[in-house]
């Protein structure tokens, strides 16, 4: 299968790779670029573990072809911590025990970040809706919802 060149920014850094035409972004990120934070749970769009933010919008990297992301700005959970300091969402997930096995966590954090980027002061209902495409088999969801609400509050305190 022919390889095609793609270029994009990943968490602010320029990346250029040759990928197989038709490769999914999930496979390109994990196998080519070495960012294993997006997880392959179902490869069917149902679990949300592969969620990333592409040009400001939450997407499923398992259903996105890498080639269609040429020139895009991609954000993954691996890029959130700055200088060894966890992002408020990561901190809140840790503090609220919102992560058990952790498989869903990078996707949950991406879905939560996509929400908070547009809705910095969400209601509980907003959070439930924002996480509705992400499956967690461990936590029962409540700690995750609380973590997102806590991160939103800590964000607004930082801004104030």
């Amino acid at each position: 299968m022919a390889k095609v060149p793609i270029q994009f920014t990943l968490n602010g850094s320029e990346k250029a790779e040759f990928v197989e035409s038709g490769a999914t972004l999930l496979n390109a990120l994990r196998d080519k670029v070495g960012d294993t934070s997006p997880k392959g749970g179902c490869h069917q769009g149902t679990c949300g573990a592969c969620s990333v933010i592409i040009d400001g919008e939450l997407r499923l990297s398992c259903l996105t072809l890498a080639e269609t992301c040429s020139g895009a700005a991609i954000i993954t959970t691996a890029g959130l911590a700055e200088g060894g300091v966890l992002h408020p969402l990561q901190r809140a997930f840790l503090d609220a025990f919102a992560s058990q096995c952790g498989f869903c966590t990078p996707g949950m954090i991406m879905a939560a970040k996509a929400l908070l980027d547009h809705t910095p002061d969400p209601s509980r209902e907003d959070v439930v809706e924002a996480l509705s495409g992400n499956i967690c088999r461990c936590t029962g969801y409540e700690p995750i919802i609380q973590a997102v609400l806590t991160a939103a509050r800590s964000n607004s305190q930082n801004v104030a």
Binding site: G22, T24, Q44, L60, L63, T64, L65
Partner: peptide
């Protein structure tokens, strides 16, 4: 044809060999 890919890429991921070229 490839639209958003939520059905057609999923079909390819599931092993639908009818889809070779998008």
């Amino acid at each position: 044809y490839l639209g958003g890919g939520t059905l057609v890429v999923r079909a390819a991921n599931e092993g639908d060999v009818g889809v070779c070229t998008l």
